[in-house]
Design a binder for these strands. Structure first.
Length: 566
DNA sequence: GCCGTTTTCGGCCCGACTGTTTTCAGTCG
């Protein structure tokens, strides 16, 4: 998968061009980088088919450059640009208040190339003497330097969601008639850079004062009547925008993004002789829509696009043609098919997990504790599995709100073998299989291990298929196209694992899997009672992958699911 | 550098806030 590498180089070129004051060509590189980064296929395959130019934003010139990157691993044009501007752009631009123009000025006038140079120059008061700079700006740079070095970057959605909801609750106590969480959180992106909040009020002064003086506020970065930005004590940035009721829909649309989707929607407005901004849809000077998002989409001649789809990955074209999928709904999930208990590495008893899930409105769960070879996770031996089966049978006689299915999460060893005998697997309602080690094997070997597990007639589900852990380890090398093909052939379901740092398969792979005709299952992989609520994260990931309920097997009622499993 | 429901040339989203400015450039989202 060279997609990441190609996208990174294209983005770096855009950075350097931006520094040089190049305008629209910069945008072209960024657009192409976006296309490549979120392509659900291997860019190398597209290149081999000679179809690079069919991708949005990629023409003759860029397709040649991409070919050069794929073939040689580098790009002469990029190398030359780097020589011209030998600055650590990425580090410098991470400083709040520094953009391409300032970085160019600092390099041209003071030879500043990196954070160390910047710090020295600022402390010697050499920056305040530059044109357009001043002592405030210099001070700001010194302040923000400290922070930029400590910053950890993006936060997991699962971590930031409760924080954002807390701030929303807090703001509801102020003079507002409405508060909504927008931005990438509303789009349910797997990681989030900041919290965006939109409020409706006719007392903006009071609300902004309230917002900037909340207990959690560490630093006020910007404060105005219509927009403010703060940094919480824990380092997370929060942006707030104030609107009135008549603009609520267009404001929510704008503030939810993504930026790329916003830009394309504004272009559609222009094409229709209209103007779209955060205050509404305008014909000449007159607002003709804006109160609700639905109204805005309608005026632009499009279907309503769910927030999770707003990533400029083809949803705008589909909405214009009326061909958007009908996404799986959060309340359509009927059960959870990967749950751990005290029998292996979970914290709760089977009964506790069952009772909690019964309250969530599910019809069924599957208890899928680890098996023998996974000693570290307290894996059960075959006798343990047999005893657990008996316990579940007994429990089911006393539970009326939910059915507990008998499952295991078997380990796929380094040669693709399972660690539980087929005789025993035959007795299980559901068998989940996964890799837990040997991630550094070759692509062929890793793919082969999963394929042989899928070819076992007892295996129903491949759990966390790519093994990635966000911020911790990359997905292992896999031929996903092959996995999808065998998944479809054998009727093995691919998991969308809901753990906040897994979300695996991820959105673009889900989309591809569905296109290939695979069926998926959304599981929490919960190890305690609280983690059962992660289902929301897995479902949002599936929605971001354009999944409909027909693609997700645990939207089925028990009877139909059992038929499918058999 | 890309693209086309007025275009193969001439466009390319739009607005708020800050700091350094006497009217605007740069940054940010």
């Amino acid at each position: 998968m060279k997609n990441r590498k190609v996208a990174t180089i294209l983005n770096r070129i855009a950075d350097l061009l931006e520094m040089d004051g190049v305008d629209f060509r910069t945008k072209a590189y960024r657009r192409a980088a976006h296309t490549v980064e979120f392509l659900s296929r291997d860019i190398q395959d597209v290149r081999n088919e000679g179809k690079l130019e069919e991708l949005p934003g990629i023409g003759k010139n860029l397709s040649k450059k991409i070919e050069e990157i794929i073939d040689t691993g580098s790009l002469e044009y990029y190398e030359n640009l780097k020589k011209e501007f030998p600055v650590d752009f990425e580090a410098l631009v991470a400083i709040e208040g520094l953009g391409p123009k300032s970085i160019k000025l600092l390099y041209d006038e003071l030879g500043i190339k990196n954070l160390e140079d910047l710090e020295k120059a600022a402390k010697r008061h050499r920056i305040r003497r530059l044109k357009g700079m001043g002592d405030k700006k210099e001070h700001q740079i010194i302040e923000n330097l400290k922070f930029a070095r400590k910053t950890t970057g993006r936060t997991l959605l699962g971590q930031i969601l409760p924080l954002a909801e807390g701030i929303k609750k807090e703001l509801e106590k102020s003079d507002v008639s409405d508060v909504e969480i927008a931005g990438s959180i509303r789009r349910m992106q797997e990681t989030v850079g900041d919290i965006d909040i939109l409020v409706v009020t006719d007392k903006p002064k009071q609300v902004m004062d309230y917002f900037t003086s909340m207990d959690e506020v560490g630093k006020i970065i910007v404060k105005g009547l219509l927009k403010s930005t703060i940094r919480l004590k824990n380092g997370v940035q929060v942006d707030i925008r104030v609107f009135n009721e008549d603009s609520f829909g267009s404001a929510l649309l704008y503030f939810t993004g993504s930026k790329e989707t916003n830009i394309d929607m504004r272009k559609i407005a222009i094409r229709n002789g209209l103007k779209l901004n955060e205050y509404g849809v305008y014909m000449d000077e007159k607002q003709i829509a804006g109160k609700t998002e639905e109204e805005v989409f309608r005026k632009l001649g499009m279907q309503y696009i769910e927030p999770e789809l707003r990533e400029n990955r083809g949803e705008i074209e589909a909405a214009l043609k009326g061909k958007l999928p009908k996404l799986v709904e959060y309340n359509e999930i009927m059960g959870d098919l990967q749950i751990h208990t005290k029998w292996s590495d979970g914290d709760a008893s089977i009964q506790d997990m069952a009772q909690k899930t019964g309250k969530l409105g599910y019809e069924y769960i599957a208890v899928t504790d680890h098996t023998g070879s996974l000693k570290i996770a307290g894996g059960m031996d075959e006798n343990g599995i047999k005893r657990q089966i008996k316990e579940i049978d007994k429990l089911n006689q006393n539970l009326d709100e939910i059915i507990v299915l008998k499952g295991v999460e078997v380990n796929i060893d380094s040669e693709g073998r399972l660690d539980v005998s087929n005789e025993l697997l035959e007795n299980m309602d559901i068998v989940v299989a996964a890799l837990h080690s040997g991630f550094r094997q070759s692509r062929e070997k890793l793919t082969g291990r999963i394929v042989s597990a899928m070819e076992n007639e007892h295996v129903n589900i491949i759990a966390h298929p790519t093994g990635r852990k966000i911020h911790y380890r990359m997905a292992y090398e896999l031929d996903l196209e092959k996995i999808f093909e065998v998944s479809k052939e054998t009727g093995t379901f691919l998991e969308v694992n809901s753990q906040p740092n897994r979300l695996d398969l991820k959105d673009i792979n889900i989309k591809r899997a569905i296109e290939e005709g695979c069926k998926l299952v959304i599981n929490t992989d919960a190890h305690n009672l609280d983690q059962l609520s992660y289902m929301k994260l897995g479902t949002s990931t599936a929605r971001r992958g354009w999944a409909e309920s027909k693609d997700i097997i645990n939207t089925l009622p028990l009877k139909k699911l059992e038929k499918l499993l058999s």
